[in-house]
Design a protein around this nucleic acid. Structure first.
Length: 616
RNA sequence: GCCGGGGUAGCUCAGUGGCAGAGCAGCUGAUUCGUAAUCAGCAGGUCGUGGGUUCAACCCCCAUCCCCGGCUCCA
């Protein structure tokens, strides 16, 4: 039986995680339903890391007896524990705490579960001065008893389960210190949070730390500067992006691709202004529901105007500018619309979280009978676009009706069903996020998995029952009467800025040829080769290939290194051989050192244009 | 916004209550070289910004802006 393996440190009884020790108290019949928990399962990881967080708390209490305990759960990547402490922790404290943790692990103290009455627990934690635990106790409504865990003399209120003893934790690492509000509520006290992670072996921990290194190396802010892609300038303002030539050419390439594909998919392209009268935003409901993300209005000739946080009202206005018949539907409007949203200074982050960004927005007005088909179209289209950028794995979520909503329950049901059927027709696995829909309709969110396996939310498909009502949009049906179309909002990449940030990290700055700012660099061996090299780069440039020249007076090794570090996909070296043969035999070098060719110039052009065309 | 850590040359980063530094990048010159760094020289700074303490502040104090790690929220 699996349980005999020493990899098992807890069990699940009927899916419920329990301490390993429950085995001894079970009858033979009950053992059927039992499953060993190891580090390979999500539930197992949580038990393991939660145990590590207890050890963290234990170590902190020993070193800082004044610290009060708050909560210490496992997270997806590790664990944390929140403490109320007068003087914030320093990085040196972190090292000392980690050292103490290793000592506690070495002691191999058993985790002992006790069930006691709530009043008894209140008494214990009250005596210990653990006010946060006391508050937690009050909120545990169900049942008269609670469980506490003791390990090496350290007692904590805890549902459990835990690993059998502290020595079971094989590898642990404290990672960072951060402030965090008690219960995530900014009106309450700011606590000190220590983040850490734990693994079942030193090798796994090492691999994880390497992963963190890799994440750091790929940081789009770092690569953005190194590759001269974009910048953010204090003088211009926080959260506002300057696209440099290298970034701008990538954006232009993405935009061209996006527009071309939208036209092929029978969307109509729109452009709309960056501001509009405040009355428009009152009508759309944004001023009521979204004001905290909007900037203050500005006055123009006695009238108030507002910079746009969204594109939808403009698209509605275009729709309404003429009568629509059922024959016109579905109407698909798409725009790369730049919006501005207020974000608190503390949340801004490179390209990922900014104050001005361009949405790849579209609004589709459809008849009820077209809804499912349209959603299916959008899903297909979305996956095609995401695929082109090398994203092949997705996490899909279907969000259903929240507590506060507009529209009729019947409509919600209809739309949710259409979303679900479309997902199923595509054979996409999805999770339901109950009650997480927007107030105006249900939605599908797609998170892409990047090359490091990290999930990023990009695409969203939202049904909207609200705006068609508010703006009184309609179409003339076969019966000659006015009908209300259903509106779908959707974005594929979400925001160009954010998507660009994700792409930078996904590719680690090594953009595929079709996106690379400079696609080829022509390098000369010596001064006498400059003239011919110039003719080679001119020939490539004439074919629309982005060429860069390095005719500097440097050794070829230096130029190759420079080119590779700037992540230029190909370099062509021009020396005596090439010059003498008049370009009959050109070879190119990939940035990793692999060589292609030799080709005549035309052959090199064909090779490159083919790779560009296929967007590999 | 809040808690903590930061801001010194284009970049990465030393530094100290008493003359502002290094490497890389840049410029100039020499070298003319075949697949990831040739050599030498030069230049580069309101030490984030504003105020204060001091004979003297990059350093200490206050304020402010921005950045980083989180909290909350989201594209």
């Amino acid at each position: 039986m699996l349980l005999r393996e020493n990899r098992v440190f807890a069990v699940a009884v009927g899916g419920e995680p329990k301490d390993l020790s429950v085995m001894g108290r079970m009858g033979a019949g009950e053992l059927e339903d039992i499953e060993g928990l190891t580090f390979s399962s999500t539930a197992g990881k949580a038990v393991y890391r939660h145990s590590a967080s207890h050890i963290l708390a234990h170590a902190v209490k020993e070193l800082f007896p004044d610290a009060k305990l708050a909560i210490g759960p496992a997270t997806a990547e590790g664990f944390y524990y929140d403490f109320d402490i007068h003087v914030p922790f320093t990085p040196a404290d972190l090292e000392a705490i980690e050292k103490r943790m290793l000592e506690l692990i070495k002691k191999n103290s058993p985790f002992i579960r006790k069930e006691i009455s709530k009043t008894e627990a209140a008494e214990i934690f009250g005596r210990m001065g653990e006010t946060y635990k006391a508050e937690l106790l009050q909120d545990i409504a169900s049942g008269e008893t609670v469980s506490i865990y003791e390990e090496g003399g350290f007692v904590d209120l805890c549902r459990g389960p835990h690993v059998p003893n502290t020595g079971r934790i094989k590898a642990v690492k404290l990672l960072s210190i951060a402030g965090a509000y008690w219960r995530g509520d900014e009106k309450r006290k700011m606590l000190q949070r220590i983040y850490g992670t734990a693994f079942d072996s030193k090798e796994e921990l090492k691999k994880y730390l390497e992963f963190l290194e890799e994440v750091k190396k790929r940081d789009h802010r770092k690569l953005g500067r190194e590759l001269d892609l974009f910048s953010i300038n204090e003088e211009i303002g926080a959260g506002l992006i300057l696209w440099h030539p290298n970034g701008a050419i990538i954006r232009k390439t993405i935009e061209d691709f996006w527009r071309d594909e939208h036209l092929k998919a029978d969307y109509k392209l729109l452009f709309s202004p960056h501001m509009a009268r405040l009355d428009l935003w009152r009508k759309s409901g944004h001023w009521d529901f979204y004001r905290e993300n909007m900037y203050s209005p500005m006055e123009v000739e006695g009238m108030e105007y507002e910079i746009k946080p969204m594109n939808c009202p403009f698209h509605l206005a275009v729709y309404k500018s003429g009568l629509k018949s059922y024959r016109d539907l579905p109407v698909r409007y798409a725009e790369l619309g730049t919006v501005y949203r207020f974000e608190r200074s503390g949340v801004l982050h490179g390209l990922m979280r900014v104050r001005g960004f361009t949405q790849d927005d579209a609004h589709i007005f459809a008849r009820e009978d077209q809804l499912e088909g349209e959603i299916l179209n959008i899903l297909d289209f979305t996956l095609f676009i995401l695929n082109t950028f090398g994203f092949e794995e997705y996490d899909v979520y279907l969000s259903t009706r929240p507590e506060k909503y507009v529209g009729s329950p019947e409509n919600w049901e209809l739309a949710t069903k259409a979303l679900r059927l479309a997902l199923e027709a595509k054979g996409l696995k999805y999770d339901i996020d109950p009650g997480e829909g927007v107030f105006y309709g249900p939605k599908i969110d797609i998170k892409v998995k990047d090359s490091l396996g990290r999930a990023w939310q990009c695409s969203t498909i939202q049904v909207d029952f609200n705006n068609p009502e508010r703006f009184d949009v309609s179409y003339r049906g076969t019966d000659g009467k006015e009908h209300r179309p259903i509106m779908i909002h959707r974005a594929l990449m979400g925001s160009l800025e954010r998507f660009f940030g994700i792409l930078i990290e996904h590719y680690a700055g090594d953009f595929p040829l079709w996106l690379a700012p400079a696609q080829v660099e022509v390098l000369t061996i010596a001064e006498r080769h400059i003239e011919f090299a110039g003719s080679v780069s001119a020939a490539l440039r004439k074919e629309g290939i982005r060429v860069q020249e390095n005719f500097e007076n440097e050794k070829i090794g230096y130029k190759i290194r420079h080119s590779a570090m700037r992540k230029v996909p190909y370099s062509v070296i021009i020396g005596d051989k090439e010059t003498e043969s008049g370009g009959a035999a050109l070879s190119a070098r990939k940035k990793n050192g692999e060589s292609i060719g030799p080709f005549p110039i035309a052959g090199l052009i064909d090779f490159l244009t083919e790779e560009i065309k296929t967007r590999r």
